[in-house]
């Protein structure tokens, strides 16, 4: 028994040394600042202690990774540590319920992912009484527009026009990350406005869909720019169009559906930050200011761009309007979803 405990202690020791020495050798400036900064802040002002950031998805996922890249820069602004707590489950609603029920003292904030959040309460089977209006909004972080891609050697479709012409006459299977996901809604929107016959194959997560398309089992990859850019550049897939008001800077050669004359068909998945209802205005202002500054940190923008993710800061009325539009676009396809 004693020997086991000794073994454990040694191991923990090794791990902590390693974490310490790793941080020391590589990013000394960043780490040190975040640790020393709190002393400079006056004690009586918010924030006095660390802030918990609820991420409604598992560690290592897209939202989590994005959060961990951004938050060190927010720490610099606020002078207190921001700790990510992953609360996965219920399609994100385990974490969102927790956020809504947390004390509105500014020490608990969280990520909200849309349109997943809306579909969670617009689906009547879920019987939820909370909506996007219950959150105190801080601002948007990432805006990832929808993309339509096919396997690189799929000769049937050279352009988006080929695909849509074909899909008007034939059933074409598309990837989806689940009933009511943004990819699913995107396919329904195209069906609705252009008269195509896209049939979503619901799977778990984008990697499932990617495997399906690369293996030639599913015809079309309905996903986000962030997921389609890498396979496109690797020559595994060809992105045919994106569903955005303007072209993406990651894929400047790819047309939008709108410029190809298919109407204003937009799709996106966005994630931003929110606080529990009733957060006092002064604390909210402080958080907004800190996040606004952190968004511009070059290191943050660079890392997000490497991942193919567009940082799009929105706050206040602009953000609110954006989310209401998001909600409205889900409500619009309600009938198609059978809700």
């Amino acid at each position: 028994m004693k020997k086991i405990i000794a073994l454990l202690v040694i191991c923990l020791f090794a791990l902590s040394i390693l974490a310490g020495c790793g941080a020391g050798t590589n990013t000394p400036a960043e780490k040190d600042e975040s640790k020393e900064a709190p002393k400079e802040i006056k004690k009586e002002e918010y924030p006095k202690k660390g802030i918990t950031v609820i991420v409604s998805y598992s560690a290592g996922g897209g939202t989590d990774t994005g959060a961990r890249i951004l938050l060190p820069h927010v720490e610099k602004e606020l002078g207190v540590p921001l700790t990510v707590v992953n609360k996965p489950g219920g399609g994100g609603w385990v974490g969102w319920n927790e956020l809504l029920n947390a004390e509105a003292d500014g020490y608990t904030i969280g990520y909200i992912n849309t349109p997943n959040l809306m579909t969670g309460y617009l689906n009547p089977a879920m019987k939820r009484d909370k909506t996007i209006d219950d959150f105190t909004l801080i601002g948007n972080h990432v805006l990832d527009y929808g993309a339509i891609a096919v396997k690189a050697d799929d000769d049937r479709f050279q352009t988006i026009d080929d695909l849509i012409e074909y899909a008007k006459k034939n059933e074409v299977t598309t990837t989806s990350t689940g009933m009511g996901s943004d990819d699913h809604i995107a396919a329904l929107k195209v069906n609705d406005s252009v008269g195509t016959k896209f049939v979503p194959v619901h799977g778990k997560g984008a990697s499932h869909g990617k495997a399906g398309v690369l293996g030639g089992h599913i015809d079309v990859f309905f996903a986000n720019v962030g997921e389609a850019t890498v396979p496109h550049k690797n020559g595994e897939m060809r992105v045919l169009a994106i569903m955005a008001p303007e072209r993406s800077k990651f894929l400047p050669d790819i047309p939008t559906l709108e410029e190809k004359g298919y109407g204003k068909i937009y799709s996106w998945s966005a994630r931003g930050l929110a606080a529990p209802p009733g957060l006092p205005q002064d604390k909210l202002d402080k958080l907004i200011a800190a996040f606004e500054k952190a968004m511009d940190a070059p290191e943050h923008v660079k890392k997000m761009e490497d991942m193919g993710l567009l940082v799009k800061w929105m706050k206040g009325e602009e953000y609110k309007k954006f989310l209401k539009e998001d909600e409205a676009s889900v409500i619009k396809v309600r009938d198609l979803l059978g809700w």
């Binding site: 405990i5 454990l8 202690v9 923990l12 902590s16 918990t52 700790t83 707590v85």
Partner: peptide, 18 residues
């Protein structure tokens, strides 16, 4: 003491479990 210290060291300090 053994259990509490172990859990604290590993989970709270090292793995940030709240």
């Amino acid at each position: 003491i053994g259990v509490n210290v172990f859990v604290y060291l590993l989970f709270v300090l090292q793995l940030n479990v709240a």
